[in-house]
Amino acid sequence: MASITARPAEVLGISPQLQRTLTWGRGREMAKHQAITTETGMPVYLCKPRSAWQRGANENTNRLLRQYLPKDADLRTFSQADLDAIAHELNHRPRKTHGYRTPAEIYAGLLNSGDALTA
């Protein structure tokens, strides 16, 4: 289950109140999505083909990732430390869609809110 985007150990690191479901695009990286569900107990839903509106955040994240990892990049040439550094940069990069807050700030806010599912 080699995937830059969904390693069960990292999914399990998500706060339990936020571990409900995971929705993903239909790329090759999710070919073993059943293993993620088995290891985490979290159902994985795949977006419908030709339903771009279901993949907005996924497509934006892919665009951002391409700044670090070209489409034809061999991920085997990157160490886990390299991939973790890329993830850290992206998680601490302000986003217009979040009112110029970072994903890390949004996540922290959810964790600190009284009801993480409605924040």
Rank of each mutant, 00 (worst) to 15 (best):
M1Y: 12
M1N: 12
A2D: 14
A2P: 15
I4W: 15
A6Y: 13
R7F: 09
P8K: 13
A9N: 03
A9M: 07
E10N: 14
G13I: 07
I14Y: 10
I14S: 07
S15F: 10
P16H: 10
Q17A: 15
Q17E: 15
Q17D: 13
L18V: 07
Q19V: 02
R20F: 09
R20A: 09
L22P: 01
T23D: 05
W24P: 00
G25H: 01
G25I: 02
R28Y: 07
E29L: 09
M30L: 15
M30F: 14
A31W: 02
K32P: 01
K32E: 10
K32L: 11
K32H: 12
K32S: 11
H33S: 13
H33I: 03
A35C: 10
A35M: 13
A35T: 14
A35D: 15
I36L: 15
I36R: 03
I36N: 05
E39H: 03
E39R: 06
T40M: 04
T40P: 01
G41A: 14
G41V: 14
G41Y: 09
M42H: 03
P43V: 07
V44G: 04
Y45D: 06
Y45C: 10
L46W: 04
C47E: 12
K48Q: 14
K48D: 13
K48F: 06
R50A: 13
S51V: 05
A52I: 06
Q54T: 02
Q54C: 04
Q54M: 09
R55G: 03
G56W: 08
A57C: 14
N58I: 15
N58K: 01
E59T: 06
N60Y: 04
T61H: 12
N62E: 11
N62P: 05
R63D: 10
L64N: 08
L65P: 04
L65T: 06
Y68P: 05
Y68W: 06
K71S: 04
D72Q: 09
D72K: 02
A73Q: 06
A73S: 05
D74C: 05
R76P: 04
T77K: 09
F78P: 01
Q80G: 01
A81N: 10
D82G: 01
A85P: 01
I86C: 02
A87E: 08
E89V: 14
E89Y: 06
L90F: 03
L90N: 01
L90D: 04
N91E: 00
H92E: 02
R93E: 05
R95D: 07
R95F: 06
R95C: 07
T97Y: 03
T97N: 07
T97G: 11
H98E: 07
Y100K: 01
Y100R: 02
T102H: 03
T102A: 08
P103A: 07
E105T: 00
I106T: 10
I106S: 07
I106V: 15
Y107G: 03
Y107F: 08
Y107V: 06
Y107E: 08
A108W: 04
L111R: 05
N112I: 00
S113I: 00
G114S: 06
L117H: 03
L117K: 01
L117G: 02
L117F: 00
A119C: 00
A119E: 00
A119Y: 11
A119M: 00
